[in-house]
Design a protein around this nucleic acid. Structure first.
Lengths: 96, 96
DNA sequence: TATTTTAGTTTATAATATAAACTTGTTTAT
DNA sequence: ATAAACAAGTTTATATTATAAACTAAAATA
C-alpha cells in the first residue's frame, strides 16, 4: 500500500538539489548552495551521496583560476526522482 | 525558494500514519501497524512523536478485554499535513 | 496450568543530517 | 612582498533520528 520512499531522495537537502538539477542542464556548487541556503559542508556531503548513488555526475574544473564544481543529473537520477515523486503521491494524495 | 519541510512529517512512517489518519475518523494501533507494515516498537515511538507534536490524539481503551489504542488526527495535524504537502510540491513539481 | 498470542513500551543500536573546523589556493590591502 | 581576508570546497565530529531488539503485562488457547 505505501511504497518505499527512496532514502537517498527522502532528504530535504538532497531533494532540493535534485529538484534544481532536474530543471537545468547543469549547476555549479555555489549556485546550488545559494539556492538551497545550505552550508558548504552539508552540501558537499549530500552531493557526494547523490553522486555515489549515481543520481548525479560531478565534474571538477576551474572557472578562471578558481576551482569550480559542476553537477548534472543523470538518467538514473531522473528516473529515481520520477519514482520518488510517484511514490510520494501515494502518501499525500487525499483519496477515497 | 525551497520551503522548510516539517521534520515531524518528513519521515516515511509518520507520514504514512498521518496519511492513513487523514482519511478516516480514527484508527487502531493494530490497524495502522498492518497498513504500514511497521514493527510495533517503531510505530509506538512514531505515534508518540506525532502525539507530542499535537498532530494526533491517542486514546487508550479496551476492546473487550484487550487493550486497544485508537489514534485520531487533530485539526493541527490536518493543517500540518496540508502545509507539508504544499511545501513538498515546491520540491517535486517540474516547473519552468 | 503451561504455552502462545495480543498489544503494546522501553531501550539500545544503527543510520542520517548537520555544522564546525580545516585545507588549498586566490584576491586584495598595506 | 607579505599579511589579511575571501572563495570553494572537504573532512571530521556531534547531534538527531529512525529502527529493531528485547521486554512487560495480560488474555486466549491447548
Amino acid at each position: 500500500m505505501f511504497p518505499k520512499l527512496d532514502p537517498i531522495l527522502h532528504s530535504e537537502l538532497r531533494l532540493a538539489v535534485i529538484s534544481i538539477l532536474a530543471d537545468v542542464d547543469g549547476a555549479e556548487f555555489s549556485y546550488i548552495k545559494k539556492q538551497t541556503g545550505a552550508t558548504s559542508g552539508n552540501l558537499s556531503v549530500q552531493i557526494d551521496k547523490l553522486s555515489a548513488a549515481g543520481y548525479i555526475s560531478v565534474e571538477k574544473g576551474f572557472k578562471g583560476k578558481m576551482p569550480c564544481t559542476t553537477c548534472k543529473i543523470t538518467p538514473a537520477g531522473i528516473e529515481a526522482f520520477e519514482n520518488y515523486v510517484a511514490a510520494l503521491k501515494e502518501y499525500i494524495s487525499t483519496e477515497k
